[in-house]
Design a protein around this nucleic acid. Structure first.
Lengths: 196, 196, 196, 196
DNA sequence: TATGAATGAGCATTCATTCAT
DNA sequence: GATGAATGAATGCTCATTCAT
């Protein structure tokens, strides 16, 4: 990576940061490491990003952009709210597992602790709940699902998915259990098709 | 804390570490900070713990001890598997919210990333799943609940609870939603009492 | 400043540098800061000035030009050497207080320490002493003042004024003392009108 | 210096800092340089001093201690206020020339610019003015000197001496002028023995 | 037991400067 | 004329760890 021609260093920096984020986690991540991996000097990174936080912020924005685009597209695609709900959930879980670095900085940072990543940066996270809430409402109105207040229930579903994603990501689930089966069971549970 | 007579410095170190863990998170935690807060020298901490990892390990062990004792006690107390299941879940969630530091190091570290916290350290985590699985099995056998394979379903329930705990801990849930209600809804959902 | 039409960027760079010099002092001054304030790139500054030192040199030259012009004009204006001496001293002190940035780089840098500002750059400083020495000589010849060797005495007067300027500039004089009064007393003292 | 046995590293750090302060000035002074010169690691310096400012502060305190002790001793020694005034002035100038590093951080820093060296740190500087003011008052009361308000006049004398010290220190005075003669002339001027 | 002293590697960040375009 | 991109060296500072006492 150090010697190949870099058409877009800014892009490379973001990508390398994402890779390192997966391997090291946010706290071990250092500008020096990124520079070494990118094959540029430390200063170059500071040329493209004011500071470390801004670099992470850019990644957070990117992550939300990707996820929201995915969900918006799904929302437009499915008329049937139950099918839509299912797809939204599959999307979310898949996004988390496919993009562990994005998921980590988007949903696993504690904004209380990391003051420099203020809560408002995460307001976009609400969007992923709202699309679910909207699908739930329609499901309820059409008698397809028996749920309580849709917004609250959407948070419940979100929590459920978040738990599955984070435990799978962290390899905490017993190896003998097939992740795909975990995911299917999760979806079934959300859609209240609990029978085996 | 610095000037009171220390009957058990080791104990104090562990307690202070836990407190700092809540405020700072694992990555901001430094031996110096602990020493300053305890009122001893850094060397003293190294007398009681070989290194930082061992100190964290001890806390992890302690955390599992506490949780397992809690769950074992509940398991012995309730004959009715459904009531037992409910109490086990309430215990788990409450434990996570009451002991954020323990919960963090027990369930939120990524053992892949933290090579020094090898997966085997977390095998005890399985115990909290097993008590749930055992209750589920009895529920199913007694026709109280319609679930699939109990061990898998126990992981599902665990994931669900884990998601709720971590999102609540990180203050990611919309402020307008009452945490207590989130928890109740979670329990209801687990017990498949979804109606209203 | 960034968007107005720049008839003379070189001039703007010098002016901005002077302003920043007042606020930050020479050591905090950075090319980047200047460029940002001017609204140009760092490269542009290097187009007009070979390096940072040359930029400072230009300001030093400018400062001496200003001061010398002021003193030369005064020298031509006053026939009476005592009045001339008084005006020369008033000029010097006022110049120092009105142009803190110029004064700093002209008279407060240590050429031993700053090898890149060689002593010869400061030879022009002697001119401000010489005009005083010349006035002193005339005063002595006309019996207006009882002084020793004029050139030495001129240095004494210079030192005196330099002390007042630097202490006032650095806000080291007790706030309860009116700067104007300090200056008047200084002038009186130089002219040996010591009585109250 | 790196290999000799260091009985008191803290002392060595202070001394080395003082030496480097003379050569480099405060702005070029770096912790790494000090460590290199002392022959210890950077961390060692931070063991003895919380940060760079605290290290400089310690030197400032030391400097004022030295100067004040010198002046207090002189004050007690001389009954004759004129002789006392003379000695106080000789002391001050000599102190400045003998201890260029101390003098620089005590009297040549701009507290406005260096916010971390707050004005109050320099209140002790006033003491050197007060001893002069007290001597002046006695001189005036005994008819030995014709001066205005003693406190103001003391500031005048201080400025005068400050100018001489700083210009001599910075090698700004014409090489052909003997520093000792400058000093004598300064003292004579202060004592109003202006004739030849 | 406990500490004071010391270290080396690391951190985020800034800087003067260069140079192809 | 002017810029955007890049660099290497430096800065103040923190860290986990060691070890003689």
């Amino acid at each position: 990576m150090a010697s190949s021609p870099q058409p877009d260093i800014r892009r490379t920096i973001l990508d390398v940061t994402r890779e390192l984020l997966i391997e090291q986690g946010i706290t071990q991540l250092s500008i020096r490491m990124i520079a070494r991996q990118v094959g540029c000097s430390v200063g170059t990174i500071y040329f493209y990003f004011h500071n470390k936080d801004e670099l992470i912020h850019s990644l957070i924005e990117e992550g939300f952009e990707k996820l929201i685009e995915l969900q918006d597209h799904t929302e437009a695609e499915f008329d049937n709210p139950l099918q839509r709900l299912e797809q939204l959930c599959r999307n979310y879980i898949q996004f988390g597992l496919d993009n562990p670095a994005y998921y980590e900085i988007m949903f696993m940072l504690n904004p209380e602790r990391m003051a420099r990543f203020p809560a408002e940066k995460y307001r976009r996270a609400r969007r992923s709940v709202e699309v679910v809430a909207s699908a739930l409402k329609e499901c309820r109105d059409q008698g397809l699902l028996s749920v309580g207040e849709p917004y609250i229930h959407a948070h419940l579903i979100w929590s459920f998915m978040h738990g599955v994603v984070t435990l799978l990501k962290a390899k905490r689930i017993d190896r003998r259990i097939d992740p795909a089966e975990m995911i299917s069971a999760t979806i079934r549970h959300i859609l209240q098709q609990n029978s085996h």
